[in-house]
């Protein structure tokens, strides 16, 4: 049995989702010869740690009841630096302006020779090249399937399952909030404003929705795909971005009468990176509704491969983190 001492840094919705999934999959992981021992959990208010393993069920209860997992005044960064362990699961919130604490956490993890699995887009969008170099220099593994498309497999699909294929381009819907808003505007013939309000009430859109609706989130994911799958060193500034705020219900209806739906499509190829509302033929594989994400990969040998799945949600995202974790430790 291989023991993987792990920290969960960031205990919001996704961090908690990871804890739940690890509890749920404990026996399964054992059947693979893996014992994932969580030695530290940190959120923005503090942390709890135990070299022999913290009780994840208790952490979840404490977070729900008190709003924090903290028992000690310790930051995630300090734990990464000081506590001996193999894997950092980095699930702090995305900050695309500075990279936030996520960037510091990842740097510290590599400096101390730890592996990193993350869902955090900020550091990947800003400092992809630097982080990959640091991981390589430290001999650390660095996986981030959860940062693009939640449960929908795309990075590992291309790098592993489709290995050997040259990827000519990828296009898809990478933001569930925008997809929901556009789908509902068409169904209800309602204005962007009205459906945005509905999405906020349902918790599908954030209180500050600009990150999603202006296309910024999609652009960040494109940057990650461009870097991870095309070997580029792109940043957010390389993306031409148009959001969905100007889309009208009339436009959606007219498009439909002519056999199209309007979707916010992110496209990446060696020619460039672009996010814009696009007309998608109603019967095209990219024309998925609701909060679904979808991506179509244009490959040299296998032709077009399209995957679709839930782009957000704590358990769905944790599923991508779990698969990264397994693929790191099962293979070595």
């Amino acid at each position: 049995m291989k023991t993987i001492r792990t920290s969960i840094i960031g205990f919001g919705a996704i961090g908690q989702g990871v804890a739940e999934v690890l509890l749920l999959k404990k026996e399964y992981l054992r059947s693979l010869g893996l014992e994932v021992r969580v030695v530290a959990v940190a959120d923005s208010k503090g942390a709890t740690f135990n070299p022999n393993g913290v009780d994840l069920a208790k952490c979840l209860v404490r977070k729900r009841e008190t709003g924090t997992v903290a028992l000690e005044k310790l930051s995630g960064l300090e734990l990464i630096k000081r506590l001996d362990h193999e894997l950092v699961i980095e699930t702090t919130p995305t900050n695309i302006e500075t990279g936030g604490v996520g960037l510091q956490n990842m740097r510290a993890a590599f400096e101390t020779g730890k592996d990193v699995v993350t869902s955090n887009k900020g550091p990947l969008t800003l400092k992809y090249g630097e982080l990959q170099e640091a991981a390589k220099a430290a001999g650390s593994k660095f996986r981030f399937e959860a940062s693009v498309g939640g449960a929908m497999p795309i990075i590992n699909l291309v790098n592993e399952v489709l290995a050997g294929n040259e990827v000519k381009g990828i296009k898809g819907i990478l933001n569930g909030t925008c997809n929901y808003i556009l789908s509902r505007m068409l169904e209800e013939k309602a204005s962007y404003k009205d459906i945005l309000a509905e999405s906020m009430e349902l918790g599908i859109a954030e209180t500050d929705p600009s990150y999603d609706v202006e296309g910024i989130d999609t652009a960040c994911k494109l940057v990650i795909l461009a870097n991870a799958l095309f070997g580029l060193d792109a940043t957010y500034n390389d993306v031409e971005v148009t959001g969905i705020t100007k889309i009208t219900p009339d436009a959606l209806e007219m498009a439909q009468e002519n056999g199209y739906v309007i979707k916010l499509i992110g496209e990446v190829s060696r020619k460039g990176l672009q996010v814009a509302p696009r007309l998608v033929p109603i019967k095209h594989p990219l024309a998925v509704g609701g909060t679904l994400n979808v991506a179509s990969v244009d490959t040299e040998l296998a032709g077009e491969i399209t995957v679709t799945g839930k782009g957000a949600g704590p358990i769905e995202t944790a599923s991508a983190i779990l698969s990264d974790l397994i693929s790191i430790y099962r293979e070595c």
């Binding site: 889309i247 814009a276 696009r278 007309l279």
Partner: peptide, 12 residues
């Protein structure tokens, strides 16, 4: 469209 500040939505 750029001159008139119109959003242009093209097919994929």
């Amino acid at each position: 469209s750029a001159k008139k500040d119109l959003l242009m939505v093209l097919p994929i």
